[in-house]
Every structure is written in C-alpha cells, then in structure tokens.
Computed example of a mutant assay.
Amino acid sequence: MKTVTFEHGTVTGYKYRGCKCLACCNAYAAYQRTRNRKRAYGTWQPLVDAAPARKHLEALHARGMAWEQIARVSGVPVTELRRLRIPMGSHQPPERIRRERAQLLLAVEFDVAPTTPKALVPSVGTARRVQGLRAIGWPLPVLTERSGLSRHALTGAMRQAMVQETTRTAVVELYDDLKDQDPRRHGVPDESTRKAITWAARSGWAAPNCWLSSDIDDPDAKPGPPEGRRYSSPSAGDRRQAIVDDTAELASQGCTREVIAVRLGVSWEAVQRAHSRAGVRIPPILSSGSVAA
C-alpha cells in the first residue's frame, strides 16, 4: 500500500505524523510564533477552500479507492472524510477546512490495492465484466462455478453501486480467462449459450470486444462498436486438442457419441479425425456408441 511521505522540518511532520525530530519541532515552534503574531494583527487565516480536497477525494473513490483506504493513507479519520462529503444531521459539508488537512488529502495518490479484502469499491467495472461474459454466451451458473463466487455476489455486482474487493478481483480474473472464449468449446450446451446471449442482448449489455481495457472501469466511458472477433481463433492443433480433451471428459460422464458430437458442435466423423491427427485413441467406451446419455 502506498503511503504519503512528508518532509522533515514541517508542521505536518510534527502535528500529524508525530515526528519529534529537532527539525520538525523547530518548524512547529516557528509556526506557533507566526500564528500568534498574525492573530495579534488580525490576519490569521488558517482555513482554505474545501472544494479542491473534496473533488480530489471523490475522484479517488470513483476510480476504486475505498474510503477506509483513503483514510489510512492520508492519516485523516474516516469520520472527517464523511463530514467533508455529506451532510451530518443539520450540518452541511464545510466550505472551508484547515490548510494542513487539505494538504494531507490532496497528497493522496490513487492506489488500486485495498486496505482489506472486504473493502468496498465501485462496482461499475465488475458489472461490465459479468455482463460482457453473459453477452458472449457464458451462463450465470457456469460463471458462478468458475469464479468460486455465489450467484448472489455476481447478480449483486450488476445491481449495487459497490462490491467487495474480493468479488472484484475474482471477476477480473474470470473475465481475463474467458473474455474471448467460446463457451461451447468448453462444454457449455448450445441452448444455454443462446439463452445467455439473448438475455444480454435484451438487457443492452456490451460484449468484451466493445470495451477498451482502459475504459471498462471508467464510470464515464461508453462501449464502442465491436472490434475484431467475438471469440479468439484457436490454431488447428488447439482445436484438435480441445476436441480430444472434451471428448474424454464427456465420455467419462457417460455421454454417447451422438451427444458428444452435439455438445462439441461438430460431427462424429470430425471427432474421429481430430483423434487420428492428434495420435490419440478414441475412449474405448465410445467404440460401440452404446453408452447411455
């Protein structure tokens, strides 16, 4: 996690970072003398406009930093951040804040790493990734199984403004693995794929090839026209190996040759050719084609 550094020989170091070195003590003593003198002349103005700090905080949060994380990095309590952002009872957010507080808040730089796995982050990128996978045919039950997340977590990410960091991380990894993969090549039935695509189309969800990687987490960005193919084009060797691997898996589940051909979206003759060219024997259990579906 990033932390805000400070220079020794400053009031910030003494007052807010707890540094008691000689340089910081001297700086604080000079600050006290200046303050007392300006107070005597009536020119003491310790407060500054709160708008720049407030705008900076909102920008950090919109990009994904949790409020707890901002508080930890800046050293400003979460309660103060809350008072700066939203009304508290009959009290409106302050128009002016102490100069030192503003300096601490403006010094915070964006850091995507959360303070805790359960920290809340904006859900916009997570929702777009789930929607994108649905748009290319990945059914929700399959996404649930592959991500290790509950159905509630995935659907909630598309409805709620915030999600836990653990959910965001799991969805990002899932999306990176599947964003250009044809579900049918991974054993997903055609009917399930069609239903997912139809649902996404009716909902107006954009496919992954409509998003730039730099825009998908930006709440102000919009999807563009599709670029390139929806699914990656595997090499002939990859296709053969996929057929061989999927055939073995489906055979172990008790599927017949006819069912396997339908699930893989090819003819049984194509399955036989793939095994022949890969130098792999067809599972013996399929030799007669009499296995029950």
Rank of each mutant, 00 (worst) to 15 (best):
V11D: 00
V11W: 02
V11Y: 00
V11F: 01
T12V: 09
T12R: 07
T12P: 00
G13P: 07
G13V: 01
G13H: 01
Y14F: 04
Y14S: 02
Y14D: 02
Y14Q: 00
Y14L: 02
Y14N: 01
K15I: 01
K15F: 00
Y16V: 07
Y16I: 04
G18H: 12
G18A: 14
G18K: 11
C19V: 15
C19S: 14
C19K: 11
C19W: 03
K20N: 11
C21S: 13
C21D: 12
L22M: 08
L22T: 12
L22E: 13
A23D: 13
A23P: 02
A23G: 02
A23N: 10
C24F: 00
C24K: 01
C24Q: 03
C25Y: 08
C25H: 12
N26I: 08
N26Q: 12
N26M: 12
N26R: 11
N26C: 08
N26L: 15
A27F: 03
A27L: 01
A27P: 00
A27T: 00
A27I: 00
Y28N: 08
Y28I: 03
A29K: 12
A29I: 02
A29W: 01
A30D: 08
A30M: 04
Y31G: 02
Y31C: 02
Q32K: 12
Q32H: 06
Q32E: 09
R33H: 14
R33C: 06
R33N: 13
T34P: 00
T34D: 14
R35G: 04
R35N: 03
R35A: 09
R35I: 03
N36Y: 00
N36S: 12
R37L: 07
R37Q: 08
K38D: 02
K38R: 15
Y41L: 13
Y41R: 13
Y41E: 15
Y41V: 06
G42H: 01
G42K: 01
G42V: 00
G42L: 00
G42W: 03
T43F: 10
T43Q: 15
W44G: 07
Q45S: 11
Q45H: 11
P46M: 04
P46A: 09
P46Y: 07
P46C: 05
P46T: 07
P46W: 04
P46F: 05
L47E: 14
V48W: 05
V48E: 10
V48T: 06
D49K: 14
D49V: 07
D49R: 15
D49P: 08
D49M: 15
D49W: 13
D49H: 14
A50Y: 05
A51Q: 15
P52C: 12
A53K: 07
R54C: 04
R54E: 04
K55F: 03
K55H: 07
K55E: 13
H56V: 08
H56S: 08
H56W: 04
L57P: 08
L57G: 05
E58R: 15
A59D: 06
A59V: 04
L60K: 14
L60T: 06
L60P: 15
L60F: 10
L60M: 09
H61A: 10
R63P: 08
R63M: 05
R63I: 03
G64Y: 07
G64C: 13
G64R: 13
G64S: 11
M65Y: 08
M65W: 05
M65L: 07
A66D: 10
W67E: 09
W67T: 09
W67N: 10
